[in-house]
């Protein structure tokens, strides 16, 4: 199951990278490549960050709750 998912993902990535040069698109290769990359980077950054924070907080609270259930005297 895992391997099927992995190979699908790899195939998807390969296919999305392969025909890059064939795309007749005016905005793919614009004058400032750095600007495009900055948009991409900030998009990824802004999208991942909140999920990371919530996941971190969730895991921390879970740990606290588990810990306090095991030895209730330990938490204030």
């Amino acid at each position: 199951m895992m391997r099927v998912g992995m190979s699908t993902l790899l195939a998807f990535l390969a296919l999305s990278a392969l025909p890059e040069a064939l795309w007749a698109c005016p905005v793919c290769f614009d004058s400032s490549d750095e600007n495009r990359q900055a948009f991409l980077a900030t998009t990824i950054f802004l999208s991942i960050l909140p999920l990371g924070m919530v996941a971190g907080a969730g895991i921390y609270i879970r740990k606290r709750v588990r810990g306090s259930r095991k030895n209730p005297a330990n938490t204030k």
Partner: peptide
């Protein structure tokens, strides 16, 4: 604080984009 982190991330992202231009 989480909200504030997102606020500053917004500012930094904006700064990065304008800088890259």
């Amino acid at each position: 604080i989480f909200t504030e982190i997102m606020f500053f991330s917004g500012l930094i992202s904006a700064h990065t984009i304008v800088k890259s231009q």
